[in-house]
C-alpha cells in the first residue's frame, strides 16, 4: 500500500450555530486515509461522526449556519478552499457519498438510469446508458437493463442501496464516504452490501471511509478504525489491534457493552454510566472523564492524541496492552 495519503484531515473543527450557542460537533480531528484503504469511523449518536463525514466531503462548509476551520486535503486539493463549482467538480469525479437511508437518497420521480447518467459528461446518450448498465452490473444488480427503466420505489431497500453506491461510483472516485450504509437494512442484506463495498475496494482500489455506530460492521472490514467520542477522536488503530486490545477506556467499555453470539445467554453486559456531554458546553479536559473508571485529576487537562507507531490514543491513563 502506498504511504502517501490520499486524504489528510488536519485539526478539523465544525461549529454549528444553534439557538443555544455554538455547538462544536467536530472539535479538532486529524487523520489520514491511504489510497485504497478501508478506514472505519465508529461512534455513538451525537459523537459527530456524520458531521465529520460531511465536512470531509465538503457538503458542510463555512457559511451562515456553521464555521469550518482546519484543513481537508484530498489528493492535493484543499476541499474547503474550493468555490461551489470546484466542489461540484470534486463530487463528480473524486469523491462519492453513500447515505444511510437509500429510500430518501434517491429522487422518487427519476428513473434509476437518470440518477446514474446525470453526472456523466461528454458521453453520447447510448454510451451513457451502456456505462450506467455497466455500473449496475458492477454493484451486483441482476437484469441491469430492465432496472435502468425502473423508479426507486420499485426496488427493495438492498437494491436501492446498490443503486446509491453505483451513483457514487459513476465518476470513478478515489474516495467513497459511506455513512451508516447498512443501518436501514436487514442483516442478510447488510452482509451483501458490506461484501460489495469490500469487493469494490479490492477490485477498483477505491478508498472507503466507513462510518457506523455498529462496531461489528466495521470490525471485519476496515483496515484501520477511528473511535469518535464527543467530537474528538478517542483512539485510532489497525482494526484487529483495536478490537483485540483497546487502549482508550471508552473503546474498551463500548466493546464490552455489545452482546456477542459466543457468550452464553443471560450474560450481564457492561454498561457505561452517565450520558455523553452536551456539545454546546462540553467539559474541559478529557470529555470522557466524567464517565470513566480510570479518571484522575490529570484528566482535567485535555489529553493529547498521542501516536505510538500505527496507533494513537487520547487518554492520560490508557488501558495497558494485553489486558485491562
Amino acid at each position: 500500500m502506498n504511504d502517501a495519503p490520499l486524504l489528510s484531515v488536519d485539526d478539523l473543527r465544525t461549529e454549528i450555530r444553534t439557538a443555544r450557542g455554538p455547538l462544536r460537533a467536530v472539535d479538532g480531528v486529524s487523520f489520514t486515509v491511504r489510497p485504497g484503504e478501508m478506514f472505519g469511523i465508529v461512534g455513538e449518536s451525537g459523537s459527530g461522526k456524520s458531521v465529520l463525514g460531511r465536512t470531509v466531503m465538503g457538503l458542510y462548509t463555512s457559511g451562515p449556519a456553521m464555521t469550518v476551520t482546519g484543513k481537508v486535503v484530498l489528493d492535493g486539493t484543499d476541499v474547503h478552499a474550493l468555490d461551489d463549482a470546484g466542489r461540484r467538480r470534486l463530487w463528480r469525479s473524486r469523491v462519492g457519498m453513500v447515505f444511510q437511508d437509500p429510500g430518501t437518497a434517491l429522487n422518487p420521480v427519476k428513473r434509476v438510469g437518470r440518477h446514474l447518467t446525470e453526472a456523466m459528461r461528454g458521453l453520447s446518450r447510448a454510451a451513457a446508458r451502456d456505462r450506467a448498465e455497466e455500473l449496475l452490473r458492477l454493484v451486483g444488480i441482476p437484469e441491469p437493463r430492465r432496472r435502468l427503466r425502473q423508479y426507486p420505489h420499485e426496488l427493495s431497500g438492498g437494491m436501492r442501496q446498490r443503486v446509491v453506491i453505483a451513483v457514487a461510483l459513476a465518476g470513478e472516485p478515489s474516495l467513497l464516504i459511506a455513512d451508516e450504509p447498512t443501518t436501514a437494512l436487514d442483516v442478510t442484506v447488510q452482509k451483501q452490501i458490506l461484501d460489495l463495498l469490500g469487493r469494490l475496494q479490492a477490485e477498483l482500489g477505491t478508498a472507503i471511509i466507513l462510518i457506523s455506530h455498529d462496531l461489528a460492521v466495521v470490525a471485519g472490514r476496515a483496515d484501520r478504525v477511528a473511535v469518535m467520542y464527543a467530537g474528538r477522536l478517542a483512539e485510532l488503530a489497525p482494526a484487529g489491534e483495536l478490537f483485540d486490545s483497546p487502549r482508550h477506556p471508552y473503546t474498551e467499555a463500548l466493546l464490552a457493552s455489545v452482546p456477542r453470539l459466543g457468550d452464553p445467554p443471560h450474560s450481564v453486559l457492561r454498561t457505561i454510566d452517565g450520558a455523553p456531554p452536551d456539545m454546546a458546553a462540553p467539559p474541559d479536559g478529557c470529555r470522557f472523564a466524567p464517565r470513566c473508571r480510570h479518571a484522575s485529576p490529570a484528566c482535567a487537562a485535555p489529553p493529547e492524541f498521542a501516536a505510538d507507531g500505527a496507533r494513537a490514543v487520547a487518554c492520560h491513563h490508557p488501558v495497558d496492552l494485553g489486558g485491562a
Binding site: 444488480i141 437494491m159 442483516v187 461484501d195 455498529d214 471485519g220 472490514r221
Partner: peptide, 22 residues
C-alpha cells in the same frame, strides 16, 4: 444458518444466497 452467516463478525463470503429477495 443464513442469518448466522450474515452476522458482521462472521467471515466474509460464505453462504451467499445471491441477491435473492424476500
Amino acid at each position: 444458518r443464513l442469518l448466522l452467516a450474515s452476522v458482521p463478525e462472521a467471515p466474509q463470503g460464505g453462504a451467499e444466497p445471491g441477491a435473492a429477495e424476500l
